[in-house]
């Protein structure tokens, strides 16, 4: 049975005490299940990064509550336990690496937790293997590519044995190859180790593999549901100047022109298949 791992109740937040200022987060109530792959979409300043920072107590709610594994994040004595359970990976791969050597950087987390040296070694090796970076364990960190740095950051979180990884636009500064590497790693971790993944991004294409998509706009949840259901709302998303995955967009436009195509196409493969079908059907007609 899937239980709720993170829950927010009418979460409100703003960065200053000024009464006139708008809330960055305006009454968000969501629950995230254990083992779920959740993607949070939204354009800049929609509050998605601010939301991520509430999940591991970098920020505390202004109003409302956040629960992680049943613990209220306002509970100070559990601060480090919550941070261990919910790891956060940031956008810039360069700025979150602490040590000059790959394996020493991965060891940073467990070292802070006071894990025994022998166990740290095991955890580091395991974490590096699960992100396919084991052969680079003795490399200098500044020599890695962007995608490798980001996978290293993920390994650094994994070594703390978290229940959940939150990634705040981890692919924004990467090239397409690096982006693919990071996404594949996340999907693998979610499927094989059952780690809850919360991916925050503004690339719609990255959302198609997730269990659930939340679309944020101006500090509140606009849409929530399975990727297929959410991306059906092409017109609504367009109204808020948000994109849909390229394949969905293509199919949508063809449908508007009167082509007979199924709804809810997400991936390139599905799109190709649907188009092939369409062409074959047309051939029969003539």
């Amino acid at each position: 049975m899937m239980t709720n791992f993170i829950e927010t109740e009418d979460l409100k937040f703003k960065y200053s005490d000024d009464v006139n200022e708008k809330n960055v987060l305006d009454g968000i109530s969501i629950s995230i299940k254990k083992g779920e792959f959740l993607t949070v979409l939204g354009h800049n300043a929609s509050g998605k990064s601010t939301l991520a920072k509430h999940f591991n107590v970098l920020l505390l709610p202004f109003g409302g509550k956040v629960f992680v594994n049943g613990i209220d994040t306002k509970n100070e004595s559990e601060l480090y336990e919550i941070r261990r359970m919910v790891g956060l990976v940031l956008q810039n791969p360069d700025n979150q690496i602490v040590a000059s050597i790959v394996e020493e950087d991965v060891a940073f987390g467990p070292e802070n937790l006071g894990v025994k040296p022998k166990e740290i070694r095991e955890r580091v090796d395991e974490a590096l293997k699960s992100v396919d970076m084991y052969e680079h364990r003795n490399s200098a960190t500044y020599k890695l590519s962007g995608g490798q740095k980001q996978r290293l950051a993920i390994a650094g979180i994994l070594a703390m044995k978290p229940e959940c990884i939150v990634l705040d636009e981890p692919t924004a500064m990467l090239d397409p190859v690096g982006r693919r590497e990071v996404l594949d790693t996340l999907i693998k971790l979610n499927h094989e180790s059952g780690i809850t993944v919360i991916l925050i991004t503004h690339y719609m294409d990255e959302a198609i593999n997730s269990d659930r998509v939340i679309i944020m706009n101006e500090g509140s949840v606009l849409l929530s549901g399975k990727p297929r259901e959410v991306f059906k709302e092409v017109e609504l998303l367009k109204k808020y100047s948000l994109d849909v995955p390229q394949s969905t967009e293509l199919i949508h436009r063809l449908k508007l022109k009167g082509c007979n195509l199924p709804e809810g196409i997400l991936s390139t493969d599905e799109c190709v298949q649907a188009l092939e079908h369409l062409l074959e059907d047309n051939k029969c007609q003539y």
Binding site: L90, N95, N112, R121, A153
Partner: peptide, 20 residues
């Protein structure tokens, strides 16, 4: 950024810290 990343990885100074 680095300070945030270190906080995320439970850094709380030298006390109770072990080494690999």
């Amino acid at each position: 950024d680095l300070a945030t990343a270190m906080e995320c990885r439970c850094y709380k100074g030298g006390e109770g810290r072990t080494r690999m």
